[in-house]
Design a protein around this nucleic acid. Structure first.
Lengths: 341, 341
DNA sequence: TATGAATGCGCAATCGGTTGTGCAACTATT
DNA sequence: AATAGTTGCACAACCGATTGCGCATTCATA
């Protein structure tokens, strides 16, 4: 261990201590010493010294000189559900594996916060910016373009940068199919099936609604507009929306397609408050939460395939696609459906 | 909007465009122009120019020169529960409010990852490092000390840096009291009450066990060692531990103190698998999850007061405490206990 | 014993801001 | 009209790393 330094140790200090030069020390410490024909002996001496003195490279200086920060940036709506928190964790783990550093910023689905976060990330010269679930990814992509930084969209697609998203329509179709299978088992035909949660403006919600419609159509069922309730991402809104729905219809839906765990929270709360039995109603949720699964094993959930999505993202970080508007869909996995293998 | 530049715009470019000098441009852009007696007219001209050309300060260069990065670092075990994700979000929001940037790194309760993350944070010259739930905070504090960086502990305390933690013992006492009240209501005296989850080595778990013991002692109850099962933070381990416990004892405990939502997940799963009625067993959980609350309204939960904890943390960031070993406890709130106001 | 090549390392410029200092040009004072 | 103070700005030296280039040795070859 070194003596506590008030001033951080630099390559100049090490050069002095090693009776060498800053350029040599630099080459040794960043691994380019062989190419610069530094003798192994001197290199070892400097490495030992650096270790003993607790030297740590000043990344700001390195970034400035190299014109590469070594930082990957990500903006994210929130951390507080399993989908987004897992995105953040997997992203960070993979970046770390490659020796990159990550900066993640939560922007609360707020366009102004998204822009501000992107501005800061660009100021810190991130090498790539991943926009996850951005309300308007194209604005961010344009900011990045102006700064010469590559951006990528995740979860919600854009038209100005490559996008990795879930196969929302197909996923929703499968989830709806599972719900309808259950409904048929119960032999309660003609009952209402409610789609609830998400935002009508957002691409994923629209796609999932379309998948929902198509699955019903496949069984000769038509879907009423009143059965589609994209009441935004908030437990209270889902709770209120369900209350209103049941008030209008005079009875519970037989099955529900719940679009996100945050909506699920409101739905479950409302059912509990009204003392309804959770098992009387067939529920599917587009998103996965293991605690919800534990509490309600008959709940069918679509688990989005985060590891694969992040892997594809890094493929594009390594080799940017020629087509900047390319969109890749990753299939989510159905959980809790006994008819699925 | 500016023409797309291949090379980023610098203050030198702006100086040329404005027919001024780099030092003047710098002063204007970082707000010190009044102190440097730059005329308002020139300042405005430069600001307009910067805006029009889409200039963005290179934070690496600024950090290098100022010897201040403007970055606050935080290490965190995980994002995937409401407690830690809320810590990350509130921390980031507060830092942003103060114009600071944050870097958060998940280290999976792994000492090696914690050290590595701290090393990187120090290389990026964070101005403060917050160690949240670190397995060995003192190691990190020492690394920071050697680098002349202030560190602070959150959630789990250390002895080498100031710590903000929850009032674990008192919180556990209250939670246990609530459980025992319920038990008495049911008039099923003499039944077993199980403490399950957490790590025997970790300070919080030990304190909570102590609070659990004290609350029972307060009612003249002694606590068997076999009723204390700190089986680590993992759903599967809690599930297995409960299975083993019930196997040994021959019956379910009448009440359970579940130490974390991750343990709760395993507990609930096991109960479901065994087809036990959740309402036959009185449950308390030290940590809060709104989805769990929705599914199980009779579940009593201690919600740790994250906003207050973060506020205290920033108080210390602003004015470091004289005593570096100071420890502050923040009272968590009990949720779902009808006897509490 | 020259000559050319390879080895081993240091010099100095550079990345893009920041900031102490100095120096004109003006204004106010006597 | 001479002096002192103020206003408005530019110069140049940093911050700590990186890297093109060059120079002195040593080694191999003729």
């Amino acid at each position: 261990m070194s003596i506590e330094q008030s001033r951080k140790l630099t390559i100049y200090d090490l050069a002095r201590l090693a009776k060498s030069s800053p350029s040599t020390v630099s080459a040794v410490l960043n691994g380019t010493w062989q190419r610069r024909r530094i003798s192994r002996k001197l290199a070892q001496r400097i490495l030992d010294l650096a270790e003993r003195e607790g030297y740590s490279t000043n990344m700001q200086a390195r970034a400035l000189r190299r014109d590469r920060s070594g930082i990957l940036g990500m903006i994210l709506p929130l951390y507080d559900n399993r989908y987004f928190s897992s995105i953040a964790q997997v992203f960070e783990a993979e970046a770390r594996r490659r020796g990159a550093f990550t900066i993640v910023s939560c922007t609360n689905r707020d366009p102004a916060q998204e822009r501000e976060a992107a501005r800061m990330m660009l100021a810190y010269r991130v090498e790539h910016l991943i926009c996850t679930g951005a309300t308007n990814p194209d604005v961010i992509a344009e900011m990045c373009g102006g700064a010469g930084i590559a951006s990528l969209n995740l979860d919600l697609p854009g038209t100005a940068a490559p996008s990795v998203i879930s196969a929302n329509r197909e996923g929703a179709r499968r989830l709806t199919d599972a719900l309808l299978d259950r409904l048929e088992e119960k032999q309660t035909d003609g009952e209402r099936v409610l789609f609830i949660g998400g935002r009508a403006e957002d691409h994923n919600t629209r796609e999932r609604i379309e998948g929902f419609r198509q699955a019903r159509e496949g069984r000769g069922l038509t879907t009423e507009a009143t059965d589609i309730v994209p009441c935004d991402y908030a437990a209270e809104k889902a709770q209120a929306a369900l209350e209103a729905y049941v008030g209008r219809e005079g009875r519970l839906p037989a099955a529900m397609f719940v679009n996100s765990t945050i909506s699920l929270e409101g739905i479950v709360r409302w059912l509990r408050l009204g003392d309804h039995d959770m098992n009387d109603i067939i529920m599917g949720c587009f998103d996965w939460d293991p605690l919800a699964a534990a509490f309600h094993p008959r709940l069918i959930m679509m688990r989005q395939d985060v590891p694969t999505m992040i892997a594809r993202l890094f493929d594009w970080i390594d080799t940017p696609p020629e087509d900047p508007t390319i969109r890749l869909e990753v299939m989510p996995e159905i959980i809790g459906d006994p008819t699925a293998t």
